[in-house]
Structures are given as C-alpha cells and as structure tokens.
Design a protein around this nucleic acid. Sequence first.
DNA 1: TTTTTTGATGTGTTTTACGATATCAAACAT
DNA 2: ATGTTTGATATCGTAAAACACATCAAAAAA
Lengths: 198, 198
Amino acid sequence: MRYEIEAVADRLREVRDAKQLSQRELSRLAGVPQAQISRIESNSVDLRLSSLVAIASALDLEIALVPRKAVPAIKSITRQTTDRTVIQPPTIGKEMQQLQKAIRALQIDAPTLPELDDLRRAAASLQRLQIDTRFLDNLRSVRHTIESANITEQWNGIFEAANSMKALRIQIAHFKPENEQRSANRPAYSLDEDDDDA
Amino acid sequence: MRYEIEAVADRLREVRDAKQLSQRELSRLAGVPQAQISRIESNSVDLRLSSLVAIASALDLEIALVPRKAVPAIKSITRQTTDRTVIQPPTIGKEMQQLQKAIRALQIDAPTLPELDDLRRAAASLQRLQIDTRFLDNLRSVRHTIESANITEQWNGIFEAANSMKALRIQIAHFKPENEQRSANRPAYSLDEDDDDA
DNA sequence: TTTTTTGATGTGTTTTACGATATCAAACAT
DNA sequence: ATGTTTGATATCGTAAAACACATCAAAAAA
C-alpha cells in the first residue's frame, strides 16, 4: 500500500491517542465498529471515504486536499492549532485520563447537567499545569466523587467535585514553581523507561 | 451522503478543471478509469482511500487531516499557494487550452526533448498575461508549429515554436497596458453569458 | 490477585467499489 | 457540415470493504 494511505492511518491513531479515546469510545462516536477501527489504524484495509469522514469528524478533523507545496505551511498551522498537553508523571497522567473518562461518562448519562461545562473547564485547566505526584490522592478523590454522583444520580455531588477541582488547581499552581519547565516535550521528572540494568 | 464527501468530490473536479485536464487525461495520470472518475466527481460512489490518493496525487494534492478550527487558516494558505490564472477572453482561453494540450501531447511522445521545459515555461509565462484577441492567430500558428513538429518528428520545429512564443510574449506585454487589470476574478472584457434576448 | 478494559484478530454474510468495455449526446474544433 | 473530444451511463464479473458477531491475550485498575 502507498505511503500516503499509511500516513492517514497513522494520523488517525495519533489524534485518537492525543484525545485519549479508546477504540471503543471512538467507535461509539463515529458509528463505526471497534473491529473496523482497529483494522483501519493497523492499515489492513483500504477504507472508504465515508468511513474516513465518520472517524475524522468524531475526532474533530476535516479532510483537506491541499497543494503539495502548501503542505509544510499546513503542517505548521496544524501543529500550532493543536493543543499541546503538558506531560505529567505517569501516575498523574493515568489518573487524569481516568478523570476525563469519568467526565465523558457523565456527559453520556446526564448530558443536560448545567455543571458539566464547569467541570470540563476545570479539568482542562488542570491539564495545563505540571502536577506533582503528591496531588494524586486529591485527584482520585475528585474522580470518586464524580463517579459516585453519577451512579447515585445525586447531581449536587458534581457541584462539589467542580469546586474541589478549582481549589486543587490553586493549590497545584502555588506549589513549587521552582520546578520550572515549559510545555515542552521533555518531562521534568525522569521517565521510567531507563533500561539501565547495569 | 454526507456533505464532507460531496466537498471532496467537488474539490477534485475543481482542481482538475483548474489544471484544464480532461477526465481521460487525468485517468491516464492517475491510473483510474475515466468512467470511475466521472462516477467519483458526480459523487455517485463511496470511493476508497486508495482511489482518492491516486487521483489526488495526479492532481498534485495531498490529503491532510486538519483540526476543524484550523480549517479557515488552511483554506487561506491553500488559496495563496494556488496559482491564480488570468481570465482570458473566451477565444483566447480556449486556444491557450489547446496549446497546453499540444504541449502535453509532446511530453508523451517525446518526453526527453530538451526544449520541452523551455516550451512549458514560455507557455506558463504567457498564461499570466492578459492576452488581446488580436493575438489569436499568433497563438494558433505557434500551436500548429508544435503539432506538426510532433507529427513529423522534426524536433527543431519545437525550438522555433519556443522562440515564437517568447517573441509573442514581449509583443503582448508591450501592447496596450492601458487596458489595466489585476489578476482579478472579474474579466476586463464582457462575458458572453448575457442572456439578453429582449 | 481478581476484574475490567483495551486492541487485535477470526468468521460468515451482505453490500459495494472497481475495472473493463461500450455507448451516447452534447460540446467543440476544423 | 463533419469529425473529434468530452463527460455521463450501463452492464458484468471480481475483489474487497463493511458489519455483526465472537474471542483472546496483554495491560491496567480494583
């Protein structure tokens, strides 16, 4: 298969990963079976345009046919437009992922809840901060609040959760700005992928 | 079918038109049957990605999956990057089309001919000028020179043709710059599409 | 550890794109 | 007027995508 096709497949997975969606979640959003998404991402099918559009739309992407010589400029714009996520320590990263997932679940079960937007905003603003591992339990606690509120349908729990998150944001922001770092690619903590077995 | 798919189909036709390629010519370039191209452009099939890539490549386009919010910026870049063609009076426009076609034919029959690039450049530079109808015969003559050179395989005719075009360019450029007009959308002459039957 | 989630892969069936080929009317060129 | 080109269609056969399932091992969460 042509490299351009592979590039499309790679890009779809890249964006899905960036949005931290599982294939099953994307499947629901796009109306395409999970098995099919897997096959598409692993580039083992010559997918139809309708499938591509469905998945791309679900990922908030549009298909653009652009002149070859405009490609570099367009890549640049795309990069600028894409929100870069702060890279968190692994445990924090995973917990944030869970948090997002809890919020998405909430969106499905109670889409009209007025606090939902508030909650999403609070979470998004957290994402942009470098979060120390010592806040892990706070994050967990917030998530549990959301989850049980969702189960028991006691929506005032959501209100609490949003407030906790805002408070937490202030705490985190005020904590140790000595540990300076930009939104860069290189994390401040040491990645655990140091295969130093010597 | 979804509007995004229609948009792709429309864009393919738009670019093909802009490049003044017939479906059959594009067919040869892309390795896709003309019938299929027709079906695709009229949006009566849900084409596969491989087909899209083949056709897009032949049109010198790439497929980009871009964030929705970047779309306006990307459209703008695409527009800037796309060469705008001067709109000629109908007769001139058609003759220039024929000329391009003759050159393309030449490219197929004698791809290694050294003057070919020269010829193409000369034609391209003509395209950017506003050409008065009085030069119609000159253009025709140049084209005939090329065509018969191609048939008789007397390639020195191509050399002549290229020189004639360069001379013609100077003539045209020096002629009546009073008839001022930018590369705009609105032509200086009156379009023949005035359905005044009264 | 136990349970859940995730991505990959398999199967059988239906639908559809695709290619090859041919035809045709309308536009166009000579 | 005559010949050529163009885009749209039609038919037929084949290959392949899409879908609805169903697993399953590995990773992750509890």
